[in-house]
Simulated assay, not measured.
Amino acid sequence: MEDDLANLRLCDEEEKAFQEEATVGDQDFRLCLVDRCLTDSVVHFPSLRNTMADVWNPVGGICISDLGDKRHLFQFFHEIDTQRVLLGTPWFFNNHLFILQKVQQREHPSDVLLNFTEF
């Protein structure tokens, strides 16, 4: 059994699905959500990243990036994960409401207006 466990490895596709942070450049944002956490206090990004990845447990994986100004980019790798998160709103982190919006085609995540939530 130990030999079997020693030979376990993530294949390249699995490693890419669980990247720590992606750069927000010229990438495809079709399966991305942007959030803003409604709080005056500091949002601890590593805690948010770990908590939301555990709570959502996406089938296709997730990449979470800090955009600054209490905004985060959630890049999913399967449409069902994006839809499940949107249908599960409202979401909270440390008792503070998230405003989540889907990034529209040809829209940059930093341009997404986060002024309302639908629930």
Rank of each mutant, 00 (worst) to 15 (best):
M1H: 08
E2A: 14
D3W: 00
D3T: 15
D4E: 15
L5D: 15
L5T: 09
L5P: 02
A6G: 15
A6Q: 13
A6D: 14
L8E: 14
R9D: 10
L10P: 00
C11M: 09
D12T: 11
D12C: 07
D12N: 09
E13S: 10
E15M: 13
E15T: 08
A17C: 12
Q19N: 10
E21Y: 05
E21D: 14
E21L: 03
A22H: 05
T23N: 12
T23Q: 14
V24L: 10
V24N: 04
G25I: 02
D26W: 02
D26T: 06
Q27E: 15
D28M: 03
D28Q: 06
D28W: 02
F29H: 11
F29D: 07
R30G: 05
R30K: 11
L31T: 01
L31C: 01
C32Q: 04
C32E: 08
C32R: 01
L33G: 01
L38T: 07
T39I: 03
S41H: 06
S41M: 02
S41V: 04
V42F: 14
V42M: 04
V43E: 01
F45C: 05
F45N: 05
P46M: 02
L48F: 12
R49W: 00
R49P: 01
T51V: 09
M52P: 00
A53T: 12
D54F: 10
V55H: 03
V55E: 08
W56F: 11
W56Y: 04
N57L: 06
P58H: 04
G60D: 06
G61L: 01
C63P: 00
C63F: 01
I64M: 07
S65L: 02
S65W: 03
S65C: 07
D66Y: 04
L67H: 04
L67E: 04
G68T: 11
D69P: 02
D69V: 07
D69M: 05
H72P: 02
H72N: 13
L73S: 07
Q75I: 01
Q75M: 11
F76G: 06
I80L: 14
I80G: 06
D81C: 08
D81S: 10
T82L: 15
Q83M: 12
V85A: 12
L87W: 00
G88F: 03
G88A: 11
T89W: 04
P90S: 10
W91N: 06
W91Y: 09
F93Y: 13
N95G: 02
L97Y: 05
F98R: 10
I99C: 09
L100C: 07
Q101K: 15
K102T: 11
K102L: 11
V103C: 03
Q104D: 13
Q104T: 05
R106E: 15
E107Q: 14
E107K: 06
E107N: 01
E107W: 00
P109S: 06
P109V: 06
S110H: 13
D111A: 11
D111W: 05
D111T: 02
V112H: 00
L113C: 05
L113F: 03
L114A: 04
N115W: 01
T117F: 12
E118M: 05
